[in-house]
Amino acid sequence: MNNDQREAAQAWVEFGARTPSKPRQASSVVLLKDSPAGLKTFLTYRPGGSPLGTVAFPGGTIDPADDDVTDWVGPSALAWAKSMGTVDSSLAKRHVVAAIRELFEETGVLLAGPDASSLVENISGADWMRARESIAAQESTFSALLERYGLALRTDLLKPLSHWMSPDFAHRRFDTRYFAAARPVNQEPSLLTSKGVWGRWASAAEILGDRATAALGDEIGVPATAGLALGELVVPGVEIILEKIAAARGCIAYLNHKRAINEYQPKLVTDTDEDFSLEVSTAPASEGGPCRER
């Protein structure tokens, strides 16, 4: 747990349990690629105490304009709802659109194409960066960009992973759907010019190998991360997904793995030394697993 979480947990305990704040709906994408060092994923630094974690996968909240996106190929909204374990097909559609939009905003990787068998290419230039900046600043919409270039979302390239709810005591709470996708050929992630601080492809096995050290926090090199270990930089959902990625036998195996989509919410635990930790229960055949984050 980071300092902000500890302060919120302390207030929750001292003043008694209250009604948790309403969580905002969010989506996050685990972008993957194979490498000699094992399966890699793209991680970024998120400033401002994001409920997704200080270090996290690309993602963010659902936007009302996500409803304007209508052109897509792949599973229907109803099929997505079923695969995500919900009966609300409209909400499932919003999560899928938000996932692809946030991935584009934050990394420039665009899971969209002119038809069901192709993807847009040559999107690393200045015009595309301006488009990303404009969408991120809500000066234009993702649907308008897709319409301008005649593109449809390739929702078939996403896989649902897991469903995580922020702890009750948190001041800012997300109800987050995690998805996974392989890096498209001829597309390479890059950070937003205006907001990018740190981001890179990271071997999940190597990140976990250094989890007890401050290697990652010191590498990012900002005051908010210096000296912090992995458990202080990421939320439990991210750490558990990293563990699953490290154990996978490559990108295809990970994406094709059959998994139940259960809802997980870290629970606050008070240790014998009166410190706090977050605990997530084990659940078979899913992205959940035993995790205790101090």
Rank of each mutant, 00 (worst) to 15 (best):
I252R: 13
V222Y: 02
W201L: 12
L278A: 14
S277D: 13
V197T: 02
S203F: 03
A253I: 10
I245Y: 14
I220N: 00
R132I: 03
D127S: 11
M1H: 10
R259I: 06
K33E: 11
I100W: 00
A215N: 14
W201D: 03
P160Y: 02
L230E: 02
M129A: 01
E106G: 03
N262R: 14
A285I: 13
L233S: 08
E106Y: 11
G113T: 01
A56S: 12
G250N: 03
T282M: 07
A8R: 01
A260Y: 04
S50D: 07
M165R: 12
S286W: 15
A11H: 10
A202N: 11
S140F: 00
G237K: 03
R130W: 07
F104K: 03
L230G: 02
Y178C: 14
D88L: 14
A226I: 15
T70W: 02
A247S: 09
P75D: 00
R200G: 15
R46I: 15
A37R: 05
A283G: 11
A37W: 02
P284H: 12
A285K: 15
M1L: 14
C251V: 15
P290N: 12
D156L: 11
T70D: 06
W80L: 15
N256A: 10
L43T: 05
R24A: 12
S76R: 02
L103W: 08
I62K: 04
L78W: 15
D66S: 00
P236F: 11
Q25R: 08
Y254M: 15
S281I: 08
A144N: 03
A8Y: 04
K267V: 08
E279P: 09
Y264L: 11
P266A: 13
S89W: 08
A17T: 07
S203Y: 03
T107F: 05
I240K: 11
T176V: 10
D67H: 06
L103P: 01
A99Y: 01
G85A: 08
R200A: 15
P23F: 04
E232P: 00
Q10T: 13
T86K: 06
D34T: 09
L233T: 05
P266K: 14
K33H: 09
P290D: 13
A92G: 11
L255N: 00
G49K: 03
K40Y: 07
S21C: 08
E188F: 12
D4E: 13
F169R: 01
I252D: 12
R259D: 05
A99D: 05
S190C: 07
A215G: 10
V29L: 09
G16T: 09
R94G: 04
G48C: 10
G217H: 05
Q138F: 08
Q10W: 13
K82S: 14
P47M: 14
R292G: 07
L39Q: 07
P114R: 06
N3V: 10
P75E: 01
D88G: 10
S35V: 04
D71Y: 03
R24F: 05
A56Q: 08
